[in-house]
Amino acid sequence: MKIRVFSIEEFSVYDGPGIRTTVFLKGCPLNCNWCHSPEGKRFGNVSLRSPNRCLNCGRCIEICEYNRKKCIGCAKCVDVCPRDLIRMSAIDYEVSELVSKLLKNADILKINNGGITISGGEPLFQVDETLELVKCLKGKTHIALQTSGYGNSQKFKEIIDNIDLVLFDMKVMDEEQAKKFEGIDNSLIFKNLEILKNSKTKFIIRVPLIPGVIDTKENLKEIINKIKGAKDLVRVELLPYNKYAGSKYKLAGLKFEPMYDENMESNPHLDLFKANDIEVRVL
């Protein structure tokens, strides 16, 4: 079975315990307005061009059937850049091949109580492949899944039953607002959250503090209501908004158009979590 990856990061520090390698799977059904990795959003394979050091020699435009105005992922331009600045946004691996790549530094992961984190995009977008990957990794290392919770519930259950930790995103709680900012119906996420709460797998709730959208008192209270008292909840991790969210759009030839005020500071409202006896950490 082939699985589509957009990057692998060794020593990813904020994706679970210990020293970890994180694999980012391509494709995401959500369309979050603040997405900081647009190259992982679309499942399609396109060229990415890093602008540092570009000679403007034009070779990549010349060879492209579409003058780089659109991209069908033919990869022709990769080979012509004299500075090796162009790469494709996706790599397709056989699951077994990916497993050995992820585990090649397994000794380091082990002595540092770490493991592998499967992230995205949204891993549940390639749900069968993710399940296969999880089954292959099981027993060999500590496995964490980072997910928005949006995907097939039955398979989600099967996946989480086979892993050690889930990093579960919670974002916009209001249904209408979620449609506007994330482009989805969030009731599926809540359904899967219940499945997670009823499983025996430990989980961490992650909240990206998008200023004025997610970090409001009302929204955070809603989140707390949903997770309060869950027995396997390890803690909540808050991610302050990163002003560089838009920096990769140019690389992927896309436009970044935030519908919120980028310059506002995130407000973590730590007191809300503490009042409910929930351990919270700001990353």
């Binding site: 520090v13 904020y14 020293i19 380091i108 002595i111 540092n112 990353l283």
Partner: peptide
Amino acid sequence: TLFRNQEGIDKVASLVKTFILL
């Protein structure tokens, strides 16, 4: 930015220790 909190610092320190162990 990796060093922004204690978790990042602890993990870099573990990485150094790993280098020594290896």
